[in-house]
Lab assay of single mutants.
Amino acid sequence: KELVLVLYDYQEKSPREVTVKKGDILTLLNSTNKDWWKVEVDDSQGFIPAAYLKKL
């Protein structure tokens, strides 16, 4: 599985998104959309702007 590093805090703005903190390491589930990547946070899944993430 691929991991990503969160570069900036992000507060979810819709139920399909997730809240993350700078420095979090998350599992990347889908990066086919260049603007929004799907990640797994704890036991939930959701989208975060790709610009907030860096592949490890």
Rank of each mutant, 00 (worst) to 15 (best):
K1Y: 13
K1M: 10
K1W: 11
K1V: 12
K1Q: 11
K1I: 12
K1L: 12
E2L: 12
E2I: 14
E2S: 12
E2Q: 14
E2T: 13
E2Y: 11
E2A: 12
E2M: 13
E2P: 11
L3W: 13
L3M: 11
L3I: 07
L3Q: 10
L3P: 03
L3S: 06
L3C: 13
V4P: 00
V4I: 04
V4Y: 05
V4K: 01
V4F: 03
L5Q: 08
L5A: 04
L5P: 00
V6P: 00
V6M: 02
V6A: 06
V6H: 00
L7W: 03
L7T: 04
L7Y: 02
L7P: 00
L7N: 00
L7R: 04
Y8E: 12
Y8R: 14
Y8M: 13
Y8G: 06
Y8Q: 13
Y8V: 09
Y8S: 09
Y8A: 13
D9V: 03
D9G: 05
D9K: 03
D9C: 05
D9S: 09
D9E: 04
D9R: 04
Y10V: 01
Y10I: 02
Y10T: 01
Y10D: 01
Y10G: 01
Q11S: 12
Q11M: 12
Q11I: 14
Q11E: 13
E12Y: 12
E12C: 15
E12N: 12
E12T: 14
E12S: 15
K13S: 10
K13L: 09
K13E: 07
K13N: 09
K13T: 12
S14R: 09
S14D: 10
S14C: 11
P15A: 12
P15K: 10
R16A: 11
R16H: 12
R16T: 10
E17Y: 08
E17I: 07
E17V: 07
E17G: 15
E17N: 10
E17K: 10
E17Q: 13
E17S: 10
V18Y: 07
V18E: 01
T19H: 07
T19R: 08
T19S: 14
T19L: 05
V20F: 06
K21I: 05
K21L: 06
K21V: 07
K21A: 07
K21R: 13
K21Q: 08
K21F: 10
K21T: 08
K22P: 02
K22T: 06
K22L: 04
K22R: 12
K22W: 04
K22G: 05
K22Q: 10
K22M: 07
G23F: 04
D24A: 13
D24R: 11
D24T: 12
D24M: 15
D24Y: 08
D24W: 15
D24V: 07
I25W: 03
I25N: 01
L26T: 01
L26C: 12
L26R: 02
L26M: 04
T27K: 13
T27G: 05
T27N: 09
L28M: 03
L28A: 02
L28R: 01
L28S: 00
L29G: 01
L29Q: 03
L29N: 02
N30P: 03
N30G: 06
N30A: 09
N30W: 07
N30D: 15
N30T: 07
S31A: 12
S31G: 10
S31M: 08
S31F: 06
S31V: 06
S31L: 04
S31R: 07
S31P: 04
T32Q: 12
T32G: 08
T32M: 10
T32K: 11
T32P: 04
T32F: 10
N33G: 08
N33I: 05
N33P: 04
N33V: 05
K34G: 09
K34S: 11
K34Y: 07
K34I: 09
K34E: 10
D35N: 14
D35S: 12
D35K: 14
D35G: 09
W36L: 05
W36A: 03
W36G: 02
W36V: 05
W37T: 00
W37K: 00
W37I: 02
K38A: 09
K38T: 08
K38H: 10
K38V: 14
K38N: 06
V39L: 03
V39Y: 01
V39G: 01
V39C: 06
E40Y: 06
E40A: 13
E40Q: 14
E40V: 10
E40G: 09
E40I: 10
V41C: 10
V41Y: 09
V41I: 13
V41N: 11
V41A: 10
D42W: 09
D42Q: 13
D42V: 09
D42H: 13
D43K: 12
D43C: 13
S44H: 15
S44W: 15
S44M: 14
S44R: 15
S44T: 14
Q45Y: 14
Q45K: 09
Q45C: 13
Q45I: 14
Q45G: 06
G46R: 11
G46T: 13
G46W: 14
G46H: 15
G46D: 03
G46I: 15
F47M: 08
F47N: 03
F47T: 04
F47A: 03
I48W: 02
I48D: 03
I48Q: 01
I48C: 14
I48K: 01
P49Q: 03
P49H: 04
P49A: 04
P49R: 06
P49C: 07
A50S: 13
A50T: 05
A50Q: 05
A50H: 03
A51L: 10
A51G: 10
A51S: 14
Y52M: 08
Y52N: 07
Y52D: 00
Y52G: 05
Y52I: 14
L53T: 04
L53Q: 00
L53D: 01
L53C: 15
K54E: 10
K54A: 10
K54R: 13
K54Q: 13
K54S: 09
K54C: 15
K54F: 11
K55M: 09
K55Q: 07
K55A: 06
K55V: 11
L56S: 02
L56D: 02
L56G: 02
L56K: 02
